[in-house]
Design a protein around this nucleic acid. Structure first.
Lengths: 340, 340
DNA sequence: TTGAAAGCGCTAACAT
DNA sequence: ATGTTAGCGCTTTCAA
């Protein structure tokens, strides 16, 4: 494999000149630049990533801390990864995957101390997330997807849950629905302080009260069978129910099954709206679900951009971004015609 | 951050001794080992990954070439990634994600020439896969998930499609079904030489003929609406149909919808079996689907193990593995009671 | 069983 | 605008 020395010889310049041409860190005459580029071209030269990282002060590698099977990974996480990888590539960075179990902070510390990466993206941040403490302690630059209160100076990208919930409720309200229930994720998830679960619950209550409506909500594990039972009991207890907001992809088929068994047609008799759902998932069902779509790709991209900008000091540290989600009207919501 | 020199000083030994203790590449007295380990412990020392890679002959980093949005990535691919990351971590390797578009071979070449990685795992291998040619040309060690005929000496891990199809058909046959249709992926996918599509089609024909049954099959895009239409026309054209094998996760809800509209109850009136599906997907539906489950996690693990074994010369090159898939009986298949 | 020292291929400080 | 050179933190050969 060609090295920088080979390029320098071939171009008839010094080693450092090649380096400076490559990094643009000092002015080089156009003529020299051309000669060097030509030599690189002809030799099929690419800078050795390891040597570069070792000699310089950054490695141009970032890690994604990815909880592959915590809550059971969904489409969303995958999209985040895909967006992150894309953004990293565009910036000339490599992306390494650090998966769980990193529960024992020691393992994460070992990884950090190898000094392979310039910074890390933390997916699925919780309140009291031990990873955050470790990262802080090691003084490692990072950016969170989600938030957590013990890292007030660290940048994050999160979903605008308030707006998400509001959009969903408003959509149903405008269609004439007044009896709206919410199916959240599991109680355990909620209690663990998982942001999406906690915040949507909070804002659902808040928005419903603003509209003078009675908020009905249930927790549900990521299991269709449980969702099926919950939906049936919801319909029994609340005979006037005409609509449902759900933030639990793996509950959806159970909900639809329960409605179908009661001969309740979606969307004619009942409106269903899924929130924080990837389009892929919404489109998987029949009818396709009206949903407030989670753009994992964008989350991943923004997180990486933010981290790299901080690393390259193109941006102040600790920027907080709330990504607005889009409500996409598909086929599962309609005007409320039925008084049950 | 502590370096090897710090450890050597603290332990009162030479630099090289520390290195040998770390790598076990030459005999060291127990006493010295203990002293060195103690020093490393106390300093919180971890070897610098870049320096190690630069000085030694391997970097202990492997890449996964991952076509994030070719066919639209599914649960399966994600599991592969998760399995690969796991296996890599257990072996002390880092895993970097190289995502598409790497269509122009130049980009992949540039990545390879950076000499960051010791080898690569190629996901979703096709016939006439340009990535394979590039890898071959660059003399880069790799292992394929899937196969392709222009790399006969390269190891791969693939699904045992013959057995998968046979198990599905046999299961239905034993339940008394004689009219079995198959819904494949799209015609375009088939024509592009995508292994799973081509091989399952082939073996479906073969096994049905062995049993003296008429093979009925359709191609279908990854879209529920299309699957819905196809299923209806299949029921119209073939009034005796009592069962369906599908290898297209995103067709499933359309199929179920069509059956439901015809008042055909699964599994009482009709058996449905999904093949090469992740359990996660099978369990997403109601009723839960009987399926021949794709274990992406295992695929990823095996691929990484195989690649690393080759790299460390613990294994001959070019081993071919066909992973057997398990048929899991869930709720969508039953004895054929109805003659329609 | 251990130590000394020559690189690995770069970046960046110090020259000119 | 360009060249020279001292490291970055390791592995590994050579020597003892």
């Amino acid at each position: 494999m060609a090295t920088m020395i080979d390029v320098a010889k071939k171009a008839g310049v010094s080693l450092s000149t090649v380096s400076y041409v490559l990094n643009g860190t000092r002015p080089i005459s156009e003529k020299t630049k051309a000669v060097v580029h030509k030599a690189m071209e002809e030799l099929g030269y690419n800078p050795n990533a390891l040597a570069r990282g070792l000699a310089g002060k950054n490695t141009r590698i970032i890690a994604v801390l990815c909880p592959i099977e915590e809550r059971g990974i969904g489409m969303g996480e995958l999209e985040v990864l895909s967006g992150a990888a894309d953004a990293a590539r565009k910036r000339g960075y490599h992306l390494v995957l650090w998966t769980y179990p990193l529960q024992e902070p020691e393992e994460l510390k070992n990884l950090i101390r190898q000094e392979l990466v310039d910074g890390v993206i933390v997916m699925e941040v919780h309140e009291n997330d031990p990873r955050i403490d470790t990262l802080l302690e090691c003084n490692e630059p990072f950016c969170m997807i989600g938030r957590c209160s013990n890292a007030p100076d660290i940048g994050y990208i999160d979903i605008n849950f308030k707006q998400t919930v509001k959009d969903a409720i408003d959509h149903l309200y405008q269609l004439g629905h007044r009896n709206i229930a919410f199916i959240n994720q599991s109680k355990e998830t909620f209690d663990s302080g998982y942001g999406p679960s906690v915040r949507t619950q909070h804002f659902f209550m808040e928005e419903m009260q603003k509209l003078d409506l009675t908020p009905v909500s249930e927790f549900c594990h990521a299991a269709p069978a449980e969702a099926y039972e919950i939906t049936k009991s919801l319909l029994d207890k609340n005979t006037e129910l005409t609509s449902l907001i759900v933030m639990n992809d793996r509950a959806i088929s159970g909900i639809m099954q329960a409605l179908s068994e009661r001969n309740i047609i979606v969307p004619d008799d009942f409106s269903l709206i899924s929130i924080v759902t990837s389009s892929r998932t919404s489109e998987l069902f029949m009818p396709q679900l009206t949903s407030v779509d989670y753009d994992g790709q964008a989350m991943g991209e923004v997180a990486v951009e933010q981290l790299i900008n901080e690393l390259e000091e193109k941006q102040v540290k600790g920027e907080k971004v709330l990504l607005p989600l889009q409500l996409i009207k598909r086929k599962s919501t309609a005007i409320c015609r039925i008084k049950r």
